[in-house]
Design a protein around this nucleic acid. Structure first.
Lengths: 233, 233
DNA sequence: CGTGACTTTGAGCCATTTCAACACGCGTGG
DNA sequence: CCACGCGTGTTGAAATGGCTCAAAGTCACG
């Protein structure tokens, strides 16, 4: 049986709205689960049966066209909430990008619990509003930005998102910062609405321009933060 | 002083969670306001000072890049909620596309009221979750669909959204349906992440293919619904 | 070292954009 | 009632950014 007191996201996830007693009840209806990269927790189009809190790792939310094109519509980090409470079908799948640990609830149980705990619903509302804002900002990128602006924006977002999280290494090195991307090139393409080749070409251009260094496939060293900001548009 | 009992969206907006007494309190802190096409209620980047319910008309939510490119990130219809409760700055402007009537609240007043009325927050949460789903579905269109798929998807969405609303004419005519778009060509381009010329060319192609008829700039008659669905991808 | 997945690079092509001219509808004023 | 101008939409031709297809390179892992 998991113990919320030891949970690393206890104070950041929506659970932070609950006292010890309430937490015990919530704990009783949830269970933790680990996931391997590529493993899915939720599939696009199915009835919404599960919701979860992310404890560790990174997951993608994605939709596909019938002919197989994919768009990643969200990226989920520790303390984030996944799933579609309050009925309906899930519009997008949730798949682990890294090894991940999640705290899973049956949607029905969670819904019932949430409706009795307004403070929890309030936290969830704040989170959902923030996620909607972030998603809408991403639409500007998808609809109106060029490939180079897209990649620069992506790297800046990654820098920001990966910094506070314990799941990916990240240290100061003078003015430069190393980030370890939880994405393959194809997945970056699926976030940005580009092809893998275009992403690759933009990476090598940034490297040739001295804006980043690419010590390995997944690692990026941000050498010139200002140049990235300028290029992000 | 407005009277919520007479409000046409009384039973569809988040207000439907409130009883007569509560409604009176809410009514006391809000006021109705009419807007002309092009008039803005909220500006991108400013502190969040207002929230509102849409009573009548259609508004757009939009963001811009520094160099003036625009992306419409949401379209708001009667009974929808606008604005960013619970702090922060607004990430996108809200501008009337048609004549509109809105029920406006100071964000501080609304926040305080909402925190004391969990049923209202619950309604708002359900609405926000639904809007997030819709927005994420739109990302697939922006990131992965071709111009023709985009316009077909747009017309189908318009058909669905404009049907129940009283704000735009819309009647059965055998199998075909007429819709009056609340958008100029430029605004359609800003929704779809295209240029105005491309939108125009796709419209004339659909017309030449007999899929739609275009009796005027703002009117579209959907002649072949199945063809649109097939083309939407 | 060999194998297979992933990534990079190259060359040509195509959808969409860009730039420019023209058409349409509508209100105003002659 | 028609000429005019202006905002909006359409059409055409040329340019181009990103895509497609193809091949070579890299890396992790056995």
């Amino acid at each position: 049986m998991a113990n919320c007191d030891l949970c690393v996201v206890r104070n950041r996830a929506i659970c932070s709205s609950l006292d010890a007693q309430e937490l015990e009840v919530l704990n009783a209806i949830g269970r933790t689960r680990t996931m391997q990269p590529g493993e899915s927790l939720i599939w696009e189009g199915e009835d919404s049966v599960l919701v979860a809190n992310v404890i560790d790792g990174v997951l993608k939310l994605s939709t596909n066209t019938e002919d197989g094109r994919e768009q990643i519509v969200g990226v989920v980090y520790p303390s984030d909430f996944i799933g579609r409470p309050f009925g309906g079908t899930t519009g997008h799948g949730a798949t682990a990008l890294t090894e991940a640990t999640v705290c899973v609830f049956s949607r029905r149980d969670f819904d019932a619990f949430a409706r009795e705990h307004p403070a929890l619903e309030h936290k969830l509302l704040e989170r959902t509003l923030a996620e909607l804002d972030r998603t809408r900002r991403w639409m500007l990128l998808l609809g109106r930005k060029s490939a180079s602006e897209k990649l620069a924006s992506f790297l800046l977002e990654m820098e920001e998102r990966l910094r506070p999280s314990g799941c990916v290494w990240n240290f100061e090195d003078g003015a430069s910062r190393r980030i370890t991307l939880p994405f393959s090139r194809q997945q970056i393409a699926d976030v940005l609405g580009l092809t893998i080749e275009t992403v690759s070409r933009q990476f090598t251009r940034l490297k040739n321009d001295g804006v980043v260094d690419l010590p390995s496939r997944r690692d990026v060293i941000l050498l010139d933060h200002a140049a990235l900001v300028a290029e992000a548009g």
